[in-house]
């Protein structure tokens, strides 16, 4: 019985994690196991946690405006640790104009403000499979 495991991370210095908590709850309600680590996580801590927890994906919520550095950093660190099989997606307040760059740097999906949570669940269910049977 394998289950999707997702790390919901909230990097950056701003103190709002309402959005991240809403996503965490809707993922739980969709039958997913969510590891939630709270505010102010560095990309290094996020990646180390994702690996210890063997998650299938990292959902990152960024409100601070630092998305153009934080997302690529997470993707690079995952590559360094040979953990590029972990999908990275995110949301928060990210302008449309920045999205192509983020997708190019290896982020699978960016949700714009106001996205319905159903859309996030649909993305997760369609593009993320629990990888436990594929032994690393």
């Amino acid at each position: 019985m394998s289950k999707i495991r997702i790390l919901v991370a909230k990097p950056g210095l701003d103190g709002h994690d309402r959005g991240a908590k809403v996503i965490a709850r809707s993922l739980r309600d969709a039958g997913i196991e969510v590891i939630y680590t709270g505010l102010r996580q560095t990309p290094e801590a996020i990646v180390a946690t994702a690996i210890q927890e063997d998650v299938d994906a990292i959902g990152v919520s960024i409100l601070s405006g630092a998305h153009n550095t934080i997302f690529p950093k997470i993707v690079t660190l995952l590559k360094d640790k040979k953990a590029e099989d972990i999908t990275v997606f995110g949301g928060g307040v990210i302008p449309e104009d920045d999205i192509p760059f983020l997708l190019q740097s290896g982020v699978a999906k960016i949700f714009t403000p106001g996205t319905a949570t159903e859309e996030v669940i649909e993305f997760v269910n369609n593009s993320i499979t629990p990888k436990s049977s594929a032994i690393a």
Binding site: L27, R28, V34, I35, Y36, G38, E44, A45
Partner: peptide, 22 residues
């Protein structure tokens, strides 16, 4: 705990242990 209805869960104990992530 897992939700008995959906089987999902929010695992939040790590919030308090963030200093040891690295």
């Amino acid at each position: 705990p897992s939700s008995p209805f959906t089987g999902g869960a929010i695992l939040g104990d790590r919030i308090r242990m963030a200093d040891h992530a690295l």
